[in-house]
Simulated scan of single mutants.
Amino acid sequence: MRAIRHHSFGPSDVLRLEELPDLVPAPGQLRIAVEAAGVHLLDTSIRAGASFGLGAPPALPAIPGREVAGVVDRVGAGADDSWLGQRVVAHLGPAGNGYAEQAVVDANRAYLIPDGLDAPSAVATIGTGRTAAAIIEFAPIGPDDLIAVPSAAGGLGLLLLQAARNAGATAIGLAGGSGKTALLPRFGASTVIDYRVEGWQRGLDGLGPITAVFDGVGGEVGQALYDRLGPGGRLIRYGWASGVQNTYDDPSRAVIDILGPPIMSRLAEFERAALDAAADGSRVPYVGSVFPLADAAAAHRALETRAAVGKVVLAVRR
């Protein structure tokens, strides 16, 4: 099989397309002929050796990627033969190994892809979609909410805009560049702001007190939005892509941290909820950037330079 590996930590050009032995599923496992693999910002920081999320550094050489979709072409001992030929999607967990033509996963961690959902959308759902489902569970949105979503043109931001629209809330979408902000009304933003424009904070004037900030950015943008929260408002934090994790200390405006222990014991529940929402059309991932497997380095650069829109996916087989 072909796979992307890196033998050292470093810039995107450490990623190499290599020929590796075919995988053999262990007892209870399925082997997936991968059609699409998800690419995440965390993949880039792991590759760079800068941050490893909640996990330990991978043993090198490593195959990045944790989200795959494709067709089951082999089953291990004890796994049900009825899986053969089924279109499935799976999150591989912190071990990764997703940027490859084959992946193995325990049968109880695989899901049938809902009808009407293609492989790129399925990988966006199983990873980014489950995070959106968790955020909505821990910080419900109501019709009286005025919410702000920075990095709204990313895969997660676009799902949160849809969730706000479904709840009847008013949503402010913030993104960098006119190409990104133009996309946001389609997904439910009633106000759009380009935070690359000097004085962008003035775009918040007259909108009323924000009741919820869904923040994966942190830094200056996160702080400015927190400052606009009304009493009793909340900032829901699921990352700090700016590299700056702000400290907030106003007890009247709570900070709710989503990632880590709050969701780890319920991952399967959130994955199922995300797939159901994609299937019924209520929260459908937007796959804005698809790269061939061999161009994984370019996919990483698109994320690192903020050039990507929506979910970034590798097309492994066509």
Rank of each mutant, 00 (worst) to 15 (best):
M1C: 04
N108Y: 13
A107S: 15
G78F: 05
Y226G: 04
A124W: 05
A33D: 10
L183H: 09
P231M: 10
I126H: 02
A119P: 01
A279C: 11
Q201I: 06
V284A: 15
R196F: 00
I113E: 08
R228S: 07
D194M: 07
L174A: 14
D205H: 12
G85K: 13
E19M: 09
A307F: 03
D144S: 13
A148C: 11
A36C: 05
G230T: 10
G203Y: 14
P25W: 08
G218N: 01
S289G: 06
G127I: 05
A279F: 12
L275G: 11
D194A: 03
I4W: 07
G177W: 09
T44G: 02
D227K: 03
A50S: 15
Y99S: 01
A279R: 15
G233C: 05
L314C: 09
G168R: 10
G28D: 02
L161H: 05
A103R: 08
P292T: 08
P120W: 04
I193P: 04
K180W: 14
L112F: 00
R74I: 01
L92N: 11
G10W: 01
G218F: 04
M1R: 11
A100H: 07
A299K: 09
S265V: 03
L293T: 07
L314K: 08
A294I: 11
E35S: 14
G199Y: 02
S289M: 15
A294N: 11
R31P: 06
L117H: 01
R130S: 13
D249N: 14
P261K: 07
V24T: 15
A299G: 10
G85P: 12
Q201M: 04
R2A: 04
L184G: 09
A26H: 03
V14F: 03
I32K: 03
